[in-house]
Amino acid sequence: MIISKPIKDFLEEAGALSIFTGRFFRELFRPRFEFNEMLRQCYFIGVKSLPLVLATAFIMGMVLTIQSRPTLVSFGAESRLPQMVAVSLVREIAPVITALICAGKIGSGIGAELGSMKVTEQIDAMEVSGTNPYKYLVVTRVLATTLMLPLLALVGDAIGIWASFLGANIKGDVSWDLYLLKSFDYLFFIDIFPAVLKTFLFGFAIGIVGCYKGMTSQKGTEGVGRSANSAVVLASLMVFVIDLLVVQMSDLYGIIK
């Protein structure tokens, strides 16, 4: 059977990425556990991305409020503003925006770092000196992104709602207590659960894709640039695909009301 080259490349890449992911789970449960290195990565990935996540969530919360207001006013439903913004922020916008920002910042960072380690033989050196580079570099980073992204997204939720309160006060006048109370009116555990669940998956995808692209980087500095770049592109795409799947599934199971 003749398969055209782009399709063949795509299938090969998907296969290689799947094998890489499979290896992650194999190595995950095998000792030795690089706990310190994982904490170090959590610091780099979590704390260092925090300012960026805060800034984007703040802006998204405020902008969403300002944009939604005229429409709601025209329906005479201005009092519903907090609920609407809170639900869209928590369910969709904060997780996805946080994931996209992290795909850009962390995905490219991991891709470039591991890529340059690969082309300057540092990964070979690690292997030769008796440290499994897959455990030391890949498992730690993937765990760190998987654990940190939900936290970042939750902080994003909080900042977004606060910014939305500020946005509502630009033209209106509402107290923080009332605004918060209204925001939580329509927020149920069942909203937050799938939203948090998908951020774990986003984090996992960003970590795996970044590491995969870095570890398979081609020779030369151009190769490093390309792995950083394709890590961002693929990770961002994965974020949307995962989002679509999770939303579809929560809809099918009747979680979205």
Binding site: E113, S116, E121, Q122, D124, A125, M126
Partner: peptide
């Protein structure tokens, strides 16, 4: 293999020092 590698030193062409 790791045991054997303990007895071998490898000086890489690009030095392979860990940048970080």
């Amino acid at each position: 293999m790791d045991k054997i590698r303990m007895k071998i030193g490898f000086l890489f062409q690009s030095n392979a020092l860990y940048d970080s």
